[in-house]
Write a protein that binds this DNA or RNA. Structure first.
Lengths: 203, 203
DNA sequence: ACCTGAACACCGTTCAAGT
DNA sequence: ACCTGAACACCGTTCAAGT
């Protein structure tokens, strides 16, 4: 075949196909991805730097909705919106999280969204230096953790043939209750915001 | 060489060597592990089921300290002790966390510790069914998140050559402030405990 | 510029052979 | 029972060859 007149691949196409594989199988492989795209493995390397680049692309896809979140005058409301959109992005593709956790964040879209959060906390709220970084880390962990628990409940702990308090609780639980998980997330988010607000008053 | 009179390998030896590699390099490979142990790759398979088994063994090593945590009459204190020991276990080996997150928990030592937590929350505190599982998940996420943020701060976000609110905050931050991270963890833990207590009063 | 096939180094796992 | 070397299927990456 060789070079077609119209390129059949693009970064966008590759990233979304990879994400689809992750959603379906919980993982993706470069050969699997090439097969899904009807292309030879080496073709991919004309568009992406390698596997890690594709993973970063997936991170970009998950954080893209954050771009459209409207700002708010109240810093607490701005943080709320940011955290909810961030969590939602990951919650929609929980299988991707382990991959993302094991790799440094370098995707520009994602970094830009962290910059936005940093600006909200610095310019609007008035946090500085170390406090600022701690706040970002807390919010980051909250969103990731909340999305992570959607990935798994029945699957996190192997339901072997024991009979214990844990296995009974697992059996009693319905499949991942997304609504309940969301409420737990929102409650913890309010707690963090309140704690930041208290900290600001003290200064 | 063939079979030695005294076995030179054991599960314990394999697991601890693997954990040392993870601490040193952030990852481990079966060949690397064999090399470190001065043994051929196939020898390992006489003692462990495979790579996933070794990862579960590492999980067991990290949760072993939990075995020695003394029980407490007060459920709130019991939960506090459990969560602190759990977090400390992971915080001592943060590089292992991505590996652990991507694999179902099947290690018996770890499962036994989750059973203990479930018993505390069920028998001592009085939580039931779904509430129980939600509480466990919240505590699990808290500990994992807290340990995760120790893994990284300067490394999570690629410090490229931009100048933004985020990069300035990163530059201002000292290396991972373990003490500050611990205080943030303990504050969030108290919040969860208080929220569980309030929930119990309501019933 | 963009696709291909062939090649390479590496990984996880299996298995027959040795004691 | 426990170590070994050889073999296998698979993965990520590179590169010269084609248009």
């Amino acid at each position: 075949m060789a070079r077609p007149h119209q390129p059949i691949l693009s970064r966008e196409l590759i990233m979304t196909a990879a994400l689809e594989l992750v959603d379906k199988d919980g993982r993706f492989t470069v050969p699997e991805l090439a097969h899904k795209l009807g292309v030879s493995v080496s073709s991919l390397y004309h568009h992406v730097g390698g596997r890690a680049d594709i993973v970063e692309g997936i991170r970009g896809l998950l954080t893209r909705p954050l771009t459209e979140v409207a700002p708010a005058d109240d810093w607490q409301e701005a943080v709320r919106r940011w955290a909810n959109a961030y969590r939602d992005g990951f919650a929609a593709h929980p299988a991707a999280i382990p991959m993302l956790v094991s790799q440094t964040v370098s995707n520009p879209v994602t970094l830009a969204q962290y910059d936005r959060l940093a600006e909200i906390l610095e310019d609007q709220a008035g946090l500085t230096g170390d406090d600022l970084l701690v706040a970002i880390t807390m919010l980051d962990n909250l969103c990731l953790g909340a999305a992570l628990d959607l990935a798994a409940p029945p699957e996190i702990w192997s339901a072997d043939n024991r009979d214990t308090a844990l296995t009974r609780a697992l059996a009693a639980a319905p499949d991942p209750d997304r609504d309940r998980s969301r409420r737990a997330f929102e409650r913890q988010l309010e707690v963090i915001i309140a704690s930041l607000a208290r900290q600001l008053v003290r200064d």
